[in-house]
């Protein structure tokens, strides 16, 4: 019964993968005449080593992923533990929390455009009323533009971690808590030494899932900043999109894609190893 799934996936994943590897070893451009797929060996990969823009996009992506996911994990876990107590409001709270994460990411980007637009954004106005000088608007300075993108991502995905934690808490057995309270553990101690370790697998899965998604961030950046100002918010996927679909350098785009894929795969494997080993020790 696996074969149809395998066939379809072979068509939509394995074929493109092989095609892209092949493409990445060639010279292929849709706009420059004469670059019709000549063999280029590892030229495209060599070119990457000297590509400062690619390096910058990797750093931007890394900053985005690490800061956003860390904030989501910490804030989301805290929120989840807090909200877990509100038994009667659970359904309403869940609805509110679900909304940001299921809303179309592109529309999320546009929504925050209404907020942070330098001329008519209500958040820009609110900051001004509070006496915070935004000068050109937060989206128009390299440093603050990335911060806004991270904030938007946290807005969107903090509820995900919170909901996971809430669900995780409901599934916890009662006995360790009973034991802790019999031992006279304080609330803080109970959190630290009983609840958190038990929640760890849930949080771990959620964080890994979020990280793999955040690495592929595109939509919100595309509509909010387009990667600018300068290159300050050009995340990896956006850079590859520019190479492939604005410059039409499909072969170099493929090489960038393959490299990213291998790197992300390696990091995931490493993270997976480390977390499972840690779990084993706990």
């Amino acid at each position: 019964m696996q074969s149809p799934a395998f066939l379809v996936l072979a068509l939509v994943v394995v074929f493109p993968l092989i095609y892209s590897i092949n493409l990445s070893l060639r010279q292929f451009s849709l706009v420059i005449p004469g670059r019709t797929g000549q063999w280029a060996g590892l030229d495209n990969y060599r070119r990457m080593l000297h590509d400062a823009d690619f390096g910058a996009s990797l750093i931007t992506t890394l900053t985005f992923v690490v800061v956003a996911v860390a904030l989501e994990a910490v804030l989301g876990t805290s929120l989840g533990i807090l909200l877990d107590r509100l038994v009667r409001l659970r359904r309403t709270i869940t609805s509110v929390l679900l909304l940001p994460m299921i809303v179309t990411p592109l529309i999320v980007g546009l929504m925050f455009n209404f907020a942070f637009n330098a001329q008519f954004g209500y958040a820009t106005w609110a900051l001004e009323v509070l006496g915070i000088e935004t000068d050109q608007g937060l989206l128009n300075k390299g440093s603050t533009a990335l911060a806004v993108l991270i904030a938007v991502d946290v807005w969107e995905w903090l509820p995900f971690i919170a909901l996971m934690v809430m669900a995780g808490l409901r599934a916890l057995p009662a006995s360790p808590f009973e034991a802790a309270s019999l031992d006279g553990a304080s609330a803080m101690q109970t959190y630290r030494y009983v609840m958190l370790p038990m929640l760890k697998p849930v949080i771990g899965v959620a964080v890994l899932f979020r990280a793999t998604e955040a690495v592929r961030e595109f939509d919100k950046v595309f509509v909010l900043t387009g990667g600018g100002p300068g290159s300050s918010t050009t995340v990896n996927d956006l850079y590859q999109y520019r190479v492939s679909f604005l410059n039409w350098d499909l072969s170099y785009g493929a090489a960038l894609g393959m490299t990213t894929f291998v790197a992300v795969l390696a990091i995931c494997a490493l993270v997976y190893r480390v977390t499972t080993r840690m779990d084993a020790r706990v």
């Binding site: 996936l9 939509v12 994943v13 074929f15 493109p16 993968l17 095609y19 892209s20 493409l23 793999t212 690495v215 592929r216 595109f218 990896n236 996927d237 590859q240 999109y241 492939s244 499909l250 785009g253 493929a254 960038l256 894609g257 393959m258 990213t260 894929f261 992300v264 795969l265 995931c268």
Partner: peptide, 20 residues
């Protein structure tokens, strides 16, 4: 392998799919 497929950058998939 299925998990890894999820990690493929969109550009790696979309160009070949388009050509295909």
């Amino acid at each position: 392998g299925l998990l890894a497929a999820r990690l493929l950058p969109a550009m790696v998939l979309s160009v070949p799919l388009f050509v295909l």
